[in-house]
Design a protein around this nucleic acid. Structure first.
Lengths: 248, 248
DNA sequence: CGGCCCATTGACTATGGTCAATATAAGTGG
DNA sequence: CCACTTATATTGACCATAGTCAATGGGCCG
């Protein structure tokens, strides 16, 4: 595997890009000081495994930048991605010794890690952290359940459209585009194979459906990763979601 | 729809069958007293809808007895069950005004409800409740993710075997059978259609696969609902899970 | 008895998977 | 700079699994 690179400087929480969204979002200055003492940064290269399923977990933490995936694998090699970890998302489960999933860096990744045991102690004494973690966990549960509908009931074409919708919307919020009317432009952060693992498809089917959506003008493809969505409501229609309602 | 039946007596938390597993598990006597003041029981008949998706939620609560299902429905009628609520499971999301899913009583159901707003207030002041709710939510998230693997990657036969495994194990713990060696006997709490909705299949495929497992001696079927599993490890093999490992 | 609900089974079809060939792009080293 | 390698993606031919449509069976209850 690839080797870990030099660590970034131990920077201040005040200037942290995920300060207001991560597990520390509700912490006040005093609480942040305590967190600073048990935190450290780690960098991973695209493709590198952050945690192996079954391994003892030494830390929990937040994704600062980049994307990681949570995957589950059967003995015969079939794999299913069960979560996509974006900046501010939390990794690890307080109170559990061993990891339940593989965590893999999909892109280059920076994580803000907390030593597990001190973090658990702090959670008991700091309701702000526990409250925020509960809120985030409830959000993740909703996301997982929404994905169950995608996996269980949508067609291959709808699955692809659903995934593209997620990226398009995520990118729109990230670049502060409040308008969803104009064309949306973004780069796919996943390979065809990773998309297949997330959608419960084969990479060939992913490729075919992307080609079909392109042929039908739902998306414009430049290269393999660069995508333009001329009409977002059209894409959401293709995803089987209500194009109008659900401002989410 | 069916009408609500007379309410059960407002009984004491001390004698509650889910006392040690529900959201109140960690509460001490004082905290239970406070909960008693905002709690009430509701009974639902099999088939009755407890909460409609999108409706304002007046309460949160725990399943005391019976089974409820959490389902999501697309405009064209395709439905996916996204959770199975068993005794002690929590219903509702503190901090959210409207329900995200339909909650339907699959069997006759008794719920211990808390008026939502007082419960939310109490959560802020009672770490024992928030801590337990976090723990339960993390468990549900794990369950949802395990189900994503089932939905995304397993064959119809494996899906059925996975579902039967869950019921068999749940029944074994409920009847205090610590031995998983001998034959396990239980009644299916779901119709074929509900199983299909949970597994992302059609009811015909469910029926066919149950017949196939029966023909192959993996299960013995008496009537439509009564099932005997002669060899649990055989069933888990069919489910694609490791038959030995994972004492879960 | 008759009607209703739930389940089973069969015949046929369609969606997506499998296997294989080919294309494209990004390095790597002579 | 260009051949060579490797990883990623596309496309085609064929096939298998599960879906669709339809007929039939079996309890249960009024």
């Amino acid at each position: 595997m690839l080797k870990e690179r030099e660590l970034p400087p131990h920077h201040d929480c005040g200037s942290c890009p995920i300060r207001h969204r991560a597990v520390c979002a509700r912490c006040d200055a005093d609480e942040l000081d305590l967190l600073e003492e048990i935190k450290y940064y780690r960098k991973f290269e695209a493709g590198q495994t952050v945690i192996w399923s079954g391994d003892r977990m030494e830390f929990v933490g937040s994704v600062v930048s980049g994307i990681a995936s949570l995957t589950q694998t059967m003995e015969d090699g079939r794999t299913q991605m069960v979560g996509l970890l974006l900046p501010s998302d939390f990794v690890g489960r307080p109170g559990r010794a061993n990891a339940a999933y593989d965590v893999v860096a999909t892109t280059d990744l920076v994580m803000c890690c907390f030593r597990k045991s001190p973090f658990e102690d702090m959670m008991l004494r700091t309701p702000h952290i526990a409250q925020r973690l509960l809120e985030m966990t409830l959000d993740e549960l909703d996301a997982a359940r929404e994905w169950m509908l995608v996996l269980g009931r949508k067609t291959a074409r709808e699955k692809i459209a659903s995934l593209l919708s997620i990226f398009a919307r995520r990118n729109a919020t990230l670049t502060k585009q409040t308008q969803l009317n104009g064309p949306l432009v973004f780069d796919l952060p996943l390979t065809r194979e990773a998309m297949a693992d997330y959608l419960g498809l084969t990479l060939e089917t992913v490729s075919r459906q992307i080609s079909a959506l392109k042929k039908d003008g739902v998306i414009v493809l430049e290269g393999k990763r660069h995508i333009t969505v001329p009409d977002m409501s059209r894409l959401m229609e293709e995803a089987g979601d209500d194009a109008d309602g659900g401002v989410y």
